[in-house]
Design a binder for these strands. Structure first.
Lengths: 351, 351
DNA sequence: CTGAAAGCGCTTACAG
DNA sequence: CTGAAAGCGCTTACAG
């Protein structure tokens, strides 16, 4: 229909404007209604499974036509009318990180089961991009937000203030309270400490990003505190940090500083697997044997570790279970409940 | 506004129904218009940058109010009216595969730059799920589809027949022609052959999924043909395959069959890095030294290889460049152009 | 059991 | 330079 009823006043340009008019006109509620000889209201009700509001014959006839024509309700119209888009936005800092990809996959699956679709936004860990996306998603009228490792930003504060349904994953709301799904980061660090200690390793070190998130800090903190409890003074634990966007590079550079003019430690905590990979590369370059010379402990336990990084001890985070929890939190928020935190169990994996 | 003008007839249940009425009423075109004392038509034009259709004073006044109120056009209303959702659906078989994650990230970035948002659907490589998503996305009135490693399915055929704008990535349309972004898989296989041959390795093998995609087949084919050209008869190339959804497992199991009762080959082509990881794990278990005993060549060259898989030779596929090409193809389709194929250059990486 | 009508938030000819 | 009105595809009280 579109454009066909518009008189073509530019006769000589007709040939140029002649696009493939292959676009089937869409099947609308009205199309079905006309074919069935009923009102669109009736078709709408039947399509929405509202039974008992139409005669059995009508229902059957309409359903047959719906099937034959392949009618699918247009969610744009529905969303406008019902005021629910059934879209959720997920903002993730970086899909190249297997942990983030695992979260995205898990959340996507859970949302789909619950009847929602997920718009994925890669913020590249940059506050401006996070803001841009937050604005764009508001325009999309998304019903909720899943913020993985969110950073502090203006639009985030505004969104929180507005009371938008947000679930924070991995990192807590950088500016206040809010629903959260993650692990007990301090305990994860402490578990790493316990393991290395139990191995009899006393020459310990930890690296971290210079401007680490609360998650990183908590992991390092838990590690250091636990060692202190075990009798190792803070000064005895070597620490190094490095700036950088990528944890791979942070791991490499921080490890470099750590060993600058000194020997490799016997045990090294890296608060993410990516940092562990970075440190590993440096070890390879320096001819250090891992794990014989140095036990590296990461956190995440990416699925690939079992296949190609058997040298890595890592705290497994059950990312596959995050999706269901996240969706649960969203539904709680939609139901008007207060935000809450959900900590999932982690497990140290030694290969 | 919602619900507030509805007379509360259940006085005694009032307390139970009293939800947090914290939901701010949204800022609409009408809100801005009322505040500015103009019609919504005028506000709409100004918001859409239609200059020269309103006096300078009006424009300034309206823009000020828009800013103060933080008005953002609701894309649901806009989509319904303009008949364009500015949403594109990406169907990917498995985000856990770093190659798929890289494609998703690249496409997402390119779409965003072009003013679109991406709904991500993880099909888990299952035809039924692909169909379910294809239907759901039609309901969402998405403007285009990006199908990564698509499998044959009913809804896909229907979508193609309908003329929906689809770009196939990695794997071609399993049932016919269509826009495509990928690499020259035969050449990639041939390049692997050339490299191993040049190393003087003659004891060669290749593994692959039993029901491989056209991409896998072409890679293996290119490898075998090139070796034949070089003088190695087909019979001299050991081959093994295995069933399985995950390429990791396929790699492991196929390698197992390959060496069943025999020695490890000196060179092994794995048509994906994931399969190479699988084969590597078996090698580790068997105490085979990689790469000293056996050179493994993968295809993809995942970003992590440089950090933790220096033993892996791999054909680098420029996934980071896929996004721009995919969006270009989509725009071509939207402009009414015929589908076309775009092959990007690959490069064998030897570490 | 069914339909006419209002309205969700926007855009856009059309008229002035 | 500006606004009234139609309409995008749906859902849902309301009336019969």
């Amino acid at each position: 229909m579109r454009g066909l009823d518009r008189p073509s006043q530019s006769g000589e340009q007709g040939a140029m404007n002649r696009k493939r008019v292959s676009a089937h006109q869409p099947v609308l509620l009205a199309t079905v209604a006309a074919k069935a000889g009923v009102s669109i209201a009736t078709v709408s009700r039947i399509v929405n499974g509202e039974t008992g509001r139409a005669s059995a014959e009508t229902i059957e006839r309409v359903q047959k036509i719906v099937g034959a024509l392949g009618y699918r309700p247009n969610h744009v119209g529905r969303a406008l009318r019902r005021r629910e888009s059934r879209i959720v936005a997920m903002l993730s800092p970086n899909l190249d990180n297997p942990a983030m990809a695992a979260i995205a996959a898990s959340v996507e699956t859970a949302l789909r089961s619950a009847g929602y679709v997920m718009i994925l936004c890669d913020t590249h860990d940059r506050a401006e991009l996070q803001d841009e996306y937050l604005h764009a998603m508001r325009s999309q009228a998304v019903q909720g937000y899943v913020l993985v490792n969110a950073v502090q930003s203006e639009a985030l504060s505004a969104s929180v203030a507005r009371g938008d349904p947000i679930v924070f994953v991995g990192r807590r709301n950088p500016a206040g309270a809010g629903s959260f799904v993650g692990i007990d980061n301090r305990r994860a660090g402490a578990d790493a400490a316990d393991h290395l200690w139990a191995q009899g390793i006393r020459d310990l070190a930890v690296i971290h990003p210079t401007q680490g998130s609360s998650a990183s800090r908590d992991r390092v903190d838990g590690f250091v505190r636990r060692l202190k409890e075990l009798g190792l003074p803070c000064e005895a634990i070597r620490q190094a940090s490095a700036l950088g966007l990528s944890h791979l590079e942070v791991g490499y550079a921080a490890a470099q500083r750590l060993i600058d003019g000194k020997s490799w430690p016997g045990g090294l905590l890296c608060p993410s697997d990516m940092m562990a990979y970075g440190a590993y590369r440096l070890a390879l370059e320096k001819g250090i044997r891992i794990p014989e010379t140095c036990r590296i402990v990461g956190i995440d336990d990416n699925a690939l570790n079992a296949w190609i990084a058997p040298w890595l001890i890592s705290v497994r985070i059950p990312y596959a279970d995050f999706g269901a929890k996240v969706v649960g939190q969203l539904q709680a928020l939609w139901a008007g409940e207060q935000p809450s935190e959900q900590l999932l169990p982690h497990e140290l994996i030694v290969r």
